[in-house]
Design a protein around this nucleic acid. Structure first.
Length: 363
RNA sequence: GGUGGGAUUCCCGAGUGGCCAAAGGGGGCAGACUGUAAAUCUGCUAGCUUCGCUUUCGGUGGUUCGAAUCCACCUCCCACCA
């Protein structure tokens, strides 16, 4: 059994569970820090462990380009190469079909990319993506999809979904190593019938988990929640549900309430590098602001992260303002800690039946 | 005491007669960031009754239709020479 549900919320679809992977168990709902290029930016694996991260992301497109599969293959896979012995989920490169839209051309069996680094042409499709993720040794392999841009006219979303469905079917047919789990990705933009059709088509294939993709790409938050309300009921209830690329603390709480078990987002790490620290019920403070120049209190009173236990806003602001990398590291530690603590609170709330209160707090 | 150089909007600094409220940095302020082309990017940064007007480029006076820019004197700073 890959996924065990341990507790269910009395109201709504929220649940807690454990996801078993080749490199260990993951308690859900879980937030997965993003480590695109084989590192969660600014964090050493030992720091991630201390922060309570159980599973992190890697990226097929980026790792394929650099350092390349030969090197990671020789290293014995991404876990050994990067010194992270715990679970890794790798994205298939489908997001880059969206984020690097100006550098690629979609074809029947995949995407022709021009490398964002030097323009080198290469092809990435379901066959290639599965092969790469097999070499990476990912615990959770994502099917190759096209993350549909927003806004997309219905016809475009429909066409995009047809391509994605085909690619995902192909993804399922590729061989992986024993122990590797494989997740499907529901698309369909913001159209109810497309979303439901996508969910049903994929649910008919025995993937190990089901993700909702193509959200948090610019659509209003309410539309994102609405999509979850359409899609999650169509997914196998006993399999993990993963909302890709989300999100803000509030979106995570709302996602859990709608039956999502897994989240990932660059938000805590990117915002940290850009000088925003998460506090309270999902607010951020601009740590570089002059008003903190003489503020010798921690980023968040009562936070027990390493940064808050030992350093003041004034000091961290100073580090950020002079460009010292420790500033970035401390804010990153704080933000990841914030998300990890949020997930612990969510899991406890679901188990204790108090998720409604948490939702009110983050509303 | 002599000679030369300099004083510019919060700071540094460009500008040497009209295209200058004045380049470019910095700092400050505000905003963005969601399966990472992001330790990144965007906007604002004299005032006002804001399609225009007023004050501003060390000080005072002058030349000119017009001066941050030219002239005279003054104040302060720097370099070198005594």
């Amino acid at each position: 059994m890959v996924f065990e549900i341990k507790a269910r919320s009395a109201e709504g679809r929220a649940r807690t569970g454990v996801l078993h992977t080749a490199h260990g168990d993951v308690e859900t709902p879980v937030f997965m820090p993003v480590g695109t290029r084989g590192t969660v930016k600014a964090m050493a694996p030992c720091e991630l462990e201390e922060l309570g991260a159980e599973i992190i992301l890697g990226n097929t497109y980026h790792l394929f380009l650099r350092p390349g599969m030969e090197i990671i293959g020789l290293a014995g896979g991404l876990h050994r190469f990067s010194g992270w012995p715990h679970p890794i989920l790798t994205d298939s490169g489908g997001f880059q079909v969206f984020s690097l839209a100006g550098l690629r051309k979609i074809e029947a069996d995949g995407v022709r990319f021009a490398s964002h680094i030097d323009g080198t042409r290469f092809f990435l499709g379901p066959v290639e993506s599965m092969r790469i993720q097999r070499t990476l040794g990912s615990d959770i392999v994502m099917a190759f999809d096209e993350c549909t841009p927003f806004p997309a006219p219905y016809e475009q979303a429909e066409k995009s979904l047809a391509v994605t469905t085909r690619w995902e079917t192909m993804s399922f047919e590729q061989e992986l190593d024993p122990g590797q789990l494989r997740f499907a990705i529901v698309q369909g933009s913001v159209y109810r019938d497309l979303r439901i059709a996508s969910a049903r088509a994929l649910a008919a294939i025995p993937f190990d988990g089901y993700a909702v993709g193509g959200l948090s790409v610019g659509e209003p938050e309410e539309q994102m929640f609405e999509c979850l309300d359409w899609v999650v009921p169509e997914l196998p209830e006993d399999k993990p549900h993963y909302l890709m690329g989300v999100g803000t603390p509030r979106q995570i709480v709302e996602g859990v309430a709608r039956g999502i078990d897994m989240f990932d987002c660059v938000m805590p790490t990117r915002l940290a590098r850009h000088g925003s620290a998460f506090v309270g019920a999902g607010r951020t403070i601009p740590i570089k602001a002059g008003r903190y120049a003489k503020d010798f209190t921690p980023i968040e009173e009562g936070c027990d992260c390493y940064a808050c236990r030992n350093f003041s806003k004034a000091y961290i602001r100073h580090l950020m303002n002079v460009g010292e990398i420790l500033g970035i590291r401390l804010v990153t530690i704080h933000n990841i800690h914030y998300f990890m603590r949020l997930m612990r609170r969510i899991r406890r709330a679901v188990a204790e039946g108090s998720l409604a209160e948490l939702r009110r707090e983050f509303a």
